[in-house]
Design a protein around this nucleic acid. Structure first.
Lengths: 222, 222
DNA sequence: CGTTTGTTTGAAATAACTCAACGGGAGTGG
DNA sequence: CCACTCCCGTTGAGTTATTTCAAACAAACG
């Protein structure tokens, strides 16, 4: 499961679907960079309720804060086959600021994570099921696009409807119904682990996706 | 609004209720340490939906990530009269690691913020209205207790039911009804800006505050 | 004191959930 | 290659948690 090679870029880990990249409470002296595959950090209640907290896509640093505090708080599971590069703290600190995997780059990823959580707290607290789903799909599309993994608005979508439900905080059955509607309105196609976005603008409008995370903030009435 | 003094510990800011500690997009070359009062970071949609993302209590660093990235993403508003100490980056970096307001302490607060958001993403995604409210009240109690601001399970509660609603992501009317129930069952008293917790254990049980979950909840132990 | 801000209550509407069952498709093993 | 699972997606019907609207009341404020 953890085959390592020792090329100058650092060792690589492989995980099969459902393997753990981390378990709750584990000590970590490295950061992972996902090279391929998707992983999710989640929290589970004894009664079975599950919420996915963070989604890691190709190109993401998996738990950049491990650089500052080497301890996993929640389990991280592979949603697909995953290939990840292991970046020991020493290797990160040795990099010059402008280089790949430098301290600044990793800390920057941590700040991005912090801001993305702002967005999701808003989504979960104040958006409807449809809005949340559209917003999520737009986010996935944008993140994959930034990593050159979208071709003509078509990209991978390995998440099951159960996964989607546990991200947007609704029931799997309801995810299904909302997706039906979106398909019915010609906004996207979703089948066989692939997503074809047919009307990105409409999807963004439905998902209240503004240009910037800070976009839809108008001063509060005094 | 921003009266400053220049004692060796650093300048102090005062804010009245509804004053802004920060506005979206503003550049920041300092971190604030709240000495007294409560403040909230929120996001607002044009249609009026508001979600409070972060609550800052006495003793909290307000936006510790400003140390790494000097830019506010969302507005921060004073919920009460607030007194805050201004900590310019230079002053923080000059501190020895074990001292108050050192780089490590501030970064630690940032990690705590990150972990607290994990908890709230879970709460908003998977908990019922009652659970969320109980969880919030337990969190407030614990955080204030860690700052020595709880006497015999009695502490300040300056949040209106509208504020509470915007934190736990439900409607103000429903907040009211849930609070009624909790009062009716003798779990707490809530009146005149003060909260008297009568049965903390029961409140924690209702709020699914597990020992494990409680870990990340509690703010940075100084 | 009058005005604003916050709380309480009732009744009707609805978004989302649960339960339950069926169907398809992708692997897996014979 | 077929048959058998098992996982995943789909659909329907009935239920429930939470919302919205509206109005009255209380409390804080200047």
């Amino acid at each position: 499961m953890t085959q390592e090679t020792n090329r100058p870029t650092g060792p690589v880990c492989m995980f099969r679907r459902h393997d753990y990249l981390a378990r709750a409470g584990e000590t970590k002296d490295c950061v992972l960079r996902i090279e391929d595959g998707w992983a999710a950090q989640y929290r589970l209640l004894p009664d079975g309720r599950r919420q996915i907290i963070t989604l890691f896509l190709p190109g993401d640093y998996c738990e950049p804060q491990w650089l500052l505090q080497g301890r996993a708080t929640l389990p991280i599971v592979a949603l697909t086959r995953v290939r990840a590069r292991v970046l020991p703290h020493g290797r990160i600190q040795a990099r010059a600021p402008h280089e790949e995997d430098s301290t600044i780059r990793v800390l920057d990823a941590m700040l991005t994570l912090l801001r993305n959580r702002e967005k999701w707290i808003f989504n979960l607290g104040r958006m409807t099921a449809t809005e949340r789903l559209c917003n999520l799909l737009c986010e996935l599309h944008a993140r994959l696009k930034a990593r050159n993994r979208v071709i003509q608005d078509r990209c991978a979508m390995p998440l099951t409807q159960y996964d989607l439900a546990d991200i947007v905080g609704i029931s799997p059955v309801h995810v299904n119904r909302v997706l039906q509607t979106l398909r019915g309105e010609g906004l996207l196609d979703l089948k066989g682990r692939w997503m074809q976005v047919r009307d990105l603008m409409a999807l963004q409008r439905l998902g209240e996706v503004s240009g910037d995370a800070a976009g839809p903030n108008v001063p509060q009435a005094a």
